[in-house]
Each structure stands twice: as C-alpha cells, then as structure tokens.
Computed example of a mutant assay.
Amino acid sequence: MLAIIYGSTTGNTEDAAKKIQDFFGADNAELFDVKDTGLAAVEYFDTLVFAIPTWDYGEVQSDWEDVWDEIDSTDFTDKTVAMVGMGDQFAYAEWFLDAMGMLHDKVVARGAKVIGYWPVDGYDFEASKALTEDKTAFVGLALDEDCQPELTEQRVKQWCEQIKAALSEKCSVDG
C-alpha cells in the first residue's frame, strides 16, 4: 500500500495524484491532501508519493509550505519515496520544478530512499533544483499542465510502470 500525498491550488496536482491512484488502484494507493492531513500518513506507510507544484519564482505551494518545517523533523528511514513535480517550463523556465527538488533534498537528508527519477528529454527550461547531479534526469516525474497537458497521461502511465517495477524489485529483495 502506498500513500499519495499532494498539495494543490488549481487542481492540476490533485488530478495527477488521482491518475497515479487510478493506475495502482484504490486498494493499493491512498490519497492524502497535505492541507487536510499534514504529514500524518508518513508514519503509517513505507512507500510514499509526494506530488508538489512549484509556484511563481521557485516557491513551494502554500499547503506544502504549512508543513515545510515539519519535514525536517520527520524520520524517513526505511521509507521509499517517489515524487511528482508540477511546473511551467516556459513562463518560469529558471525555476522549473524547484519545489520538487527542494522537497527531494529534505527527505533524502532525513533518510528516504528515492525512486522514480525521470529523464529531462522533451522539456525546454533554463534551470531547475529538481535535476539530478549529472543533470540528465529530474528527481521525480515532471509534469507541465500549462505547456504540455497532452503529454501528462502518457507520462504518468510510464512513470507509474517504472515505480511499480522498482517496488517489485524492492519486495523481492526485501522479501
């Protein structure tokens, strides 16, 4: 069972979270709006998907902002985390998906194992805090409902298949 924890102002991130839940099925994935539940689900789930949009000039969305400091005191040891970032690669090209990158750094510092890195191919942006060190991938699924909404469905499906495979490997190794 995995927890999908999201924050959403316009509904785009919530829609992406629901697509992920649809892929895994409601029996295997539970949705949590960070605005309503905070980080409470972290304690009860070993596998987490965090969905976070970047606002304006690389800022954290307001619902995530409310729990931002709490992340620093949350233990992610033995937790597997995957991330989804929402952003606008043209209007905010210098800050594309920065919030996802900042969240990634926080949970890794607290012991999380991150899966679900996503290639940068097919995106056009100037800079991002969500890039891996070698800059060939994002630290999670990159979605742009403003400029590439027609690609969201396929990207979510491919990424979910990648996550499912990584979790299957983890279970066979742990099992």
Rank of each mutant, 00 (worst) to 15 (best):
M1E: 14
M1Y: 01
L2P: 00
A3F: 03
I4R: 01
Y6M: 04
G7V: 07
T10V: 04
G11V: 04
G11S: 08
N12E: 09
T13C: 02
D15I: 04
D15Q: 13
A16M: 09
A17R: 01
K18T: 10
K19M: 14
I20K: 01
D22K: 00
D22H: 01
F24W: 00
F24E: 01
G25K: 05
G25L: 02
F32Y: 14
F32K: 09
F32I: 02
F32C: 02
D33V: 03
V34T: 03
D36W: 00
T37V: 07
T37H: 11
L39N: 10
A41G: 14
A41H: 11
V42S: 05
E43Y: 05
Y44D: 10
D46S: 11
T47K: 08
L48H: 07
V49E: 00
F50T: 04
P53E: 13
P53C: 05
D56S: 09
G58A: 05
G58V: 03
G58H: 07
G58F: 06
E59M: 10
V60R: 10
Q61F: 02
S62Y: 14
D63W: 03
W64N: 10
W64A: 08
E65A: 14
V67I: 12
E70K: 13
I71N: 04
D72E: 13
D72R: 12
T74Y: 03
D78A: 10
A82K: 00
A82D: 00
M83S: 06
M83W: 02
G87P: 07
G87I: 07
G87E: 11
F90T: 11
A91T: 13
Y92C: 07
E94W: 05
W95R: 07
F96I: 06
F96L: 03
F96E: 07
L97K: 09
L97E: 07
D98R: 01
D98F: 12
D98H: 06
A99E: 04
M100V: 08
M100L: 07
M102E: 14
L103P: 08
L103T: 06
L103H: 04
D105M: 09
V107C: 05
A109T: 11
A109W: 00
G111K: 02
V114Y: 08
V114E: 15
G116N: 05
G116H: 06
P119G: 11
P119T: 11
V120C: 06
D121F: 07
D121T: 10
D121A: 13
G122Y: 11
G122H: 11
D124V: 11
F125L: 08
E126I: 08
S128W: 09
S128T: 11
K129S: 12
A130L: 11
A130P: 12
L131Q: 14
T132K: 04
E133F: 06
K135Q: 14
T136Q: 14
T136F: 07
A137L: 02
F138E: 13
V139A: 08
L141W: 05
A142P: 15
A142R: 10
D144N: 09
E145V: 08
C147N: 15
C147V: 10
E150K: 06
L151Q: 13
Q154M: 09
K157I: 03
K157A: 01
Q158A: 06
C160H: 01
C160I: 00
E161Y: 00
Q162D: 15
Q162T: 11
Q162Y: 05
I163F: 02
K164E: 15
A165F: 02
L167R: 02
L167P: 00
K170P: 01
C171F: 10
V173R: 13
